[in-house]
Amino acid sequence: MAGFFCLLLVLPLFIQGFYASLLTMTFIYIIAAIGVNILTGFTGLVTVGHGGFFAIGAYTTALMGKYLGVSMLPGLFAGGITAGVVGFLLGIIFLRLSGAFLAIGTLGFAFAIGSILNNWSIFEGREGISLPHNSIAGLKFGDVGLYYFCAITMIFLILFANSLIKSSVGRAFTAVRDSERAAESSGINLRFYKTLSFTISAALTGMAGALFAHHTNYVSSETFGDSWLSVDFLVAVVVGGQASLAGSILGGAFVVLLPYYLSEYRDFAFILKGVVLILVLLFAPAGLSDLLGRLYRKILGKIVRGQSDVSCNLRD
C-alpha cells in the first residue's frame, strides 16, 4: 500500500497535464466510492442517493468560494461537514428502512437535491456557479497542484477508513450488517451505529464533491442533479468489491477510466458498464478486488510450490 501511495506522489513527474487531471478525477471517485462502501459494503445499507451528498459538498465549497472568498482547504472541510450533518439527519429519518426500501428512499433524496438545485435561485440552476481560481493561502494551484491536493486528501481518507474499519467501530458496522439480533444482544446500539455510518459515509462523499467542484471550477445542476452520479458510485462499490477498500479503489478507477477510454463510442461505454456489472454480480459477487486477490494467491501459490520443488531437488 505504501508503494502505491509513493507511486501516486511521483507520477506527475512523468505524465502530462491532461492525464494528471484524469487521475485527479479518479481519486475523487475513489473517495466517493469509499464513502458509499462504508454505508453499503460495511454496514449493509444500500444507498442510491450519494450523488446528493456529492452535490452538497460541491455546492458548499462553491457558494463559500463565491460569496465569502473561502479557499480550497476550508471549502473541503466545510463540504464534508455540511454533507455529514445532512447525512446524520437523513440517517435518523431512514433508520427504519432497509434493503430495497432504503435504496428507493435514498434515490428520492438524490432527486430532491437535484430539484432543489434547479429551482432555488441561490444555486443558479443550469446556469451554474463558477468558482474562483483554486488556491490555498494565496498560492495558486494548476492541474498538477490539484492532483497533489486530491492525492494527499485521498491518501489521508484511505488511511482514516482503514483505521475505522479495523477498529471496534468498524466491527460494530459489520455486526449490524450480518445480524441485527446478535449485534443488539452484544450491546450494539443499532440506531447509533446506523446513524454514525450514514454520517461518516455522507461526509466522505461530500468531501469528494467539494474536490470535484474545484476540479471543474464550475458547478451546475446539469452535473449534480443527475441521479446517474449516485448509480455510478454504487456501481464502483459493487464492481470493485463490497466491504473492501482496495475494491473501492478499483471500482472508482473503473467508473472513471472506462468511459474515458471508450469516449469515442459514447453509448457503448454505457452498455459495457452495465455488462461488466452483470458479469461481476454473476461470477464474482465479492467484486474485482476479491477476484484479483484470489488470482494473486493462486499465482503466488504456484511460485512458492515451484520454489519448494527446486529446493527439494537441491537437497537430492
Binding site: 477498529s167 471496534s168 467501530v169 459489520t174 455486526a175 450480518d178 445480524s179 446478535a182 452484544s186 450494539i188
Partner: peptide, 26 residues
C-alpha cells in the same frame, strides 16, 4: 445467530462491544 462471514476471533471481539472504550480514539 453469528457474524458468519467473520472469524471466530472477530465474533468474540464483537461480543466485547460493551467494553469498547473511547469511540474517537478507537
Amino acid at each position: 445467530n453469528l457474524f458468519k462471514t467473520r472469524t471466530v476471533l472477530d465474533n468474540i471481539l464483537i461480543g466485547m462491544h460493551r467494553h469498547i472504550g473511547n469511540l474517537v480514539s478507537a
